[in-house]
């Protein structure tokens, strides 16, 4: 860990209106927290700014929380291969109404890798990614109902005439 980067992170957090929570010893990641509105500018800066140079998006993973408020949390794991930095950005958005999908900004124009990661999160968690070029389902069949990684997910009874539940 090179702590000389820390003031730059604090500046960045202030500039973009996000929270910087320091270095996590166990994981080896610098930690950011953001809301949906400021997420895009934070990630843009981490990508564009020469002192961070996050050229590698490791993954976008999701999480469905039911308490205290029902929300979707997306975790962006970034890495800078040139600057040897690893950064974790957590972004939370509440689910106000079951029928409305929470919306996150797409970063597929910054990192090509985000394209499929976002499609996967979109189909499994029921998220809309604003500005994504092609938000079709990735793993599930096109006509699948529901979002399997939500906590309250109930699988449909049949798919194309086949029972989903196991029975003897």
């Amino acid at each position: 860990m090179d702590s000389s980067i820390e003031p730059l992170f604090l500046d960045l957090a202030q500039k973009t209106g996000t929270d910087f929570t320091g270095f996590d010893q166990t994981s080896g990641y610098w930690e950011f927290k953001s809301d949906v509105i400021h997420l895009r500018s934070l990630l843009e800066n981490l990508y564009m700014d020469n002192s961070f140079w996050c050229d590698f998006l490791q993954s976008i993973s999701g999480e469905h929380k039911q308490a205290p408020l029902e929300s979707i949390v997306l975790h962006y794991h970034l890495e800078s291969l040139t600057r040897s930095l690893k950064i974790h950005v957590a972004c939370s958005e509440n689910i106000v109404e079951a029928s409305i999908k929470p919306t996150f900004p797409s970063v597929s124009d910054l990192w090509k890798a985000a394209d499929w990661h976002e499609r996967e999160s979109a189909e499994l968690f029921g998220i809309h990614f604003e500005g994504h070029p092609d938000l079709r389902k990735l793993l599930l069949p096109n006509d699948w109902q529901g979002f399997p990684l939500r906590k309250d997910y109930q699988a449909q009874e049949r798919y194309h005439g086949l029972k989903i539940k196991y029975e003897k």
Binding site: L140, P148, L162, K163, I164, K165, E167
Partner: peptide
Amino acid sequence: YHVVKGVDRI
């Protein structure tokens, strides 16, 4: 939820 419970069903 995504697995056919035996290919003999199809």
